[in-house]
Design a binder for these strands. Structure first.
Lengths: 123, 123
DNA sequence: ATACATGCAAACGGTTTGCAGAATA
DNA sequence: TATTCTGCAAACCGTTTGCATGTAT
């Protein structure tokens, strides 16, 4: 556990989530000016494999990262790209039953139009 | 509707799914030798926007494409990367009720270990 | 005739990697 | 001391794009 890794970990913990690797890099750089981008990518990958964080593959642009806590899905607006968490109570257990074997993780992204974008489109 | 687009469309229809853009390009090239990679990418994007096909963002490697038919989720083995379809009966409607607005599409990817990889890991 | 789609190749963006040196256990 | 991790920069890979030409309507 290096200073760099601890810093990245802390940033993840103190942040609501949905950060990109580069945003994390920028935050880290504020407190450790010569940390390298590659280090951030390497550590994020390690933390993902250790299930400490979850990688969200976005329909557009770079991946985003969430600290893993309560399992949840994501609501993605196809209009503006805004991303919201949605609780998906019991989905994981249901899936496990349906599949008949242990689920390691899942990613659920629901595409919709947020109220603002729906309004725009209606006009 | 150009010849290129028709060909790509036909390849999608006659294929079980989960193809990458480059695999589609290779198949297309067999029948139209000087079709360009860019044309395939452009048409896949158009077909995606028209909801004729669905883009699957994979945990590793390039995106894959399914012809849209019955809504379904995907089972992804973290060991070997194999991808399977799973029916997710009624999920879409449930989600719509839960969210209170129309769902445009969703992507559900469940990570697990397939029997072969589970066996390997147990050893 | 006009607009749009194509082939080509170069550029792009996010991510990974080889390497020499530094930090860790 | 042995090993793992870092910073740096170059490479990588999937995808996009500008442009001149060709095709469809």
């Amino acid at each position: 556990m290096t200073r760099q890794r601890a810093l990245i970990f802390e940033i993840m913990q103190n942040h609501p989530g949905h950060l990109t690797a580069d945003e994390i890099f920028a935050l880290a750089k504020q407190r450790m000016p010569n940390i390298a981008r590659g280090t951030v990518y390497r550590n994020l990958k390690l933390m993902e494999q250790a299930n400490e964080i979850a990688r969200l593959e976005m329909p557009a642009g770079p991946d985003r990262f969430d600290k893993t806590s309560v399992p949840h899905g994501h609501l993605y607006c196809d209009g503006c790209g805004e991303l919201q968490d949605i609780p998906v109570v019991g989905l994981m257990r249901e899936l496990e039953t349906a599949i008949g074997t242990q689920v390691r993780s899942y990613q659920l992204t629901i595409h919709y139009l947020c109220p603002a974008c729906r309004r725009k489109q209606a006009q």
